[in-house]
Design a protein around this nucleic acid. Sequence first.
DNA 1: CCCTCGACTACACACGCGTGTAGTAACCTA
DNA 2: TAGGTTACTACACGCGTGTGTAGTCGAGGG
Lengths: 201, 201
Amino acid sequence: MSSDLTARARIRDAAIELFAERGIDGATIRDIAQQADVSSGLLRHHFGSKEGLRDACDEWALNELTKISGQFTEFNTLDGLTPRVQLLQRYLIRSTMDGSPTGAAMFDRMLIFGHQWLATTNLKIADPEAFVAVLAVMKMSLFTMRDLLSRALGSDVTEPATWARMLQATLDLFSQPLITEEQALQAQAALDRLIAGEEAS
Amino acid sequence: MSSDLTARARIRDAAIELFAERGIDGATIRDIAQQADVSSGLLRHHFGSKEGLRDACDEWALNELTKISGQFTEFNTLDGLTPRVQLLQRYLIRSTMDGSPTGAAMFDRMLIFGHQWLATTNLKIADPEAFVAVLAVMKMSLFTMRDLLSRALGSDVTEPATWARMLQATLDLFSQPLITEEQALQAQAALDRLIAGEEAS
DNA sequence: CCCTCGACTACACACGCGTGTAGTAACCTA
DNA sequence: TAGGTTACTACACGCGTGTGTAGTCGAGGG
């Protein structure tokens, strides 16, 4: 993000930062231009419109991310430790939630990788679609709710050390059952009852 | 949400629906007033400002939710099945992510309940704060990423049947380890290496 | 009957937004 | 050196926003 870059690149970097921070609608053209140290007209000159800028950011972030680590979409990955990679992921997920088609495509890719991963295990899942989707969404939540997590942990999760704490937590979460077998059976029975009641009505 | 309510109540209901749907900034005073079938001035008359309306919605949603089910903040709960409860939860979480203090308080309560739950188990967690925070955030993600989930499942998660599929998935997720012991040890070693490398630098 | 007060509306204001336009400086090519 | 394309800026426009203000309607109490 240093200033010896092209103006176009500076605008792109500033946009990714502010879009990730405040959301697509929350970040204004003028703020982005100011952060990039250019006029707002130049932004328009290079990217045509705010939508054009967002598209360019989507494409660039996705390319950059796959370039850095092809494992981005896999589960239990330990990358994303560097602030830069974290920012790119955070931007892309934010853009996804604000209705970007590129983001939706990324999510679909995460689902595909999820299914591939599931196939390598010998887990018996009755509803793989739901299982993989829930897992993908939960992984994304570590980025979308960054502020809440930072507040709860008392330190910004952008800090590699804090991020490592979260990775440790997810590892704990995925490496052991959280509820006992009896609890699971009990919950399953309750759920079955609910589903049956729903179908009956 | 029928129209035989007080105008004030109709405004509140409309606000919760539109705030949850489009976010706090995304929903305009005029849209809310129109949905409630009143003038935008009446909204101001009753709630003072948009911020006042949001505060009123926060408080009302939290009260209503704790009234309906005191288990709201617990883990692995099977409630939230009715569209009404789901809407209230979705609104509150949305408001939380848009910086509401009431929402932050709710999140803190979720953390407390999380720690209480953790104490009843005999799980050995090195970093309970991080573990509980990650768990809370992941649970919330089922609401924040509703659109993505609906798209992946091919049906709106507000449908009780679809919601039940997600509950089933979370039950599957929490009742068994997702990775083998060897994989866990391997990941742990990699994580330890990363942490050590971080401290060294 | 009148007076008051709360529910409710219509309308105007200031502001910030994305966008459009005109113009300037720099640089490359012939 | 002349001409044209590109990088870049300053500034104005229209629109939607939250907010402010004046006024209407109707019920309740002296």
